[in-house]
Nucleic acid binder design. Structure first.
Lengths: 229, 229
DNA sequence: CCGCATTTGTTCGTATGTATC
DNA sequence: GGATACATACGAACAAATGCG
């Protein structure tokens, strides 16, 4: 087995490896990564080389370093960081509309390709929503609701669509969270959830699309109310 | 007027400025940027500082440096570069589906918000398409066709959506271009163009959406044929 | 408050490789 | 091939921030 020669610089190689460690979840957001000395040995490079790789990732928004404290993972992917940076220049409504575009398409694709496993998982998510709603556990409810939508998008089978959707969702919820400190009371839309499930089960694209549209309207109103405060 | 202290490093400041110069179109893709000596004076920083800023941008995919030849702009924005990198791991079909999701939403929004100016510009684009088609000027035709779709998306008024759509389009066409060296003969869909224009003029969202769906089907078939070769 | 260990930030110097003319 | 300039990688020394006892 002949291996192609390494024409990439050491810095590039190290940066790429760290990037992968983060994107594959080895190091997750908020984690402190090992100190320079340790990484120097692991990657077998000099301190300067390692530091330059880290600086590149800091500039990309993936890491954050602080003197004396250490280096912390800030974002789970370069794309996520770049999107976050771009979205800062947009309004919440614009962001919501993009998320809607992705979810609409995903729901229609899900209606086409859904498997039995997908349907079962959707049912579980609805159960969780209901359970959390009955117990007035807001945080749990929001998480379950996000999971439901995420599951729909995952059923589309398009990994690029899934990634973009999840990034947009993450950014949106961070936005909302920052804006109002978690005490948002979104209405429970069990009927809507069940309608969407039914549409996907029946493989009815149009119906699925209509659901997403209704959901979007609801969300838009909520968000606009929040924004006014 | 008191100005907040600069707590960003010089490198960050320079990198940010260069980033802006590129994103605002001052320097466009393919351009050779001024030599280091010149930039050192412009930004009033040392060579090392400037070089480090450039290396950060190289890692982000915005610039490309080669010894002796100089530094060249490689991408029009960080987001574009990050997307390009991510899309490499996806199939062309997946990419097309995401672009479709964005265009579908945009077309519906365009139908709602279009101004007279938008309509006029769309008509001009169709004229250009027709003209190029009659003259068998393939390159010009493709450009005019892209312009038409871009104009539709721009009429949506959502700048985030516009940016993402343009990046996806750019990536897709670079993909196709690489794959088959420009001698692709896409069919001229004047009827479809006119139908979409009419739908937008009448502010008929559903009709606009149906058009995009048909266009997507057509494109999908073409792309799948190409991919088989 | 001090002193210390840990950890990142900064700036030198040096050796070696590599592209261009 | 030789000369020159630039890129890459390493090492070392010191500065500065943080946290702990």
């Amino acid at each position: 087995m002949i291996q192609k020669a390494n024409r990439k610089s050491l810095v590039e190689q190290v940066a790429e490896q760290i990037e992968q460690l983060i994107e594959q979840g080895e190091w997750t957001v908020g984690d402190k990564i090992p100190p320079e000395m340790e990484l120097m040995e692991e990657f077998d490079v000099s301190r300067n080389t390692l530091r330059e790789a880290i600086r590149a990732l800091v500039h990309a928004g993936l890491l954050n370093t602080r003197q004396g404290k250490g280096t912390v993972v800030q974002s789970s992917s370069v794309l996520g960081a770049a999107l976050k940076h771009r979205v800062k220049k947009s309004t919440m409504l614009e962001t919501l509309e993009v998320r809607f575009a992705l979810e609409d398409q995903a729901a229609q694709m899900a209606a086409e390709h859904r498997t039995e496993a997908d349907l079962a998982q959707l049912k579980t998510c609805i159960q969780h929503c209901k359970h959390a709603s009955e117990n007035d556990d807001l945080e749990q409810f929001i998480q379950s609701d996000i999971d439901f939508h995420k599951t729909v998008v995952q059923a589309s089978g398009n990994q690029l669509l899934i990634d973009l959707y999840e990034h947009m969702t993450e950014i949106l919820y961070a936005f909302i969270h920052d804006l109002m400190g978690m005490d948002t009371s979104l209405p429970f839309e069990e009927e809507l959830h069940l309608e969407l499930l039914e549409a996907i089960q029946k493989q009815d694209k149009q119906q699925a699309s209509i659901y997403i549209e209704n959901y979007m309207k609801l969300l838009k109103e909520n968000v606009m109310n929040i924004a006014e405060e």
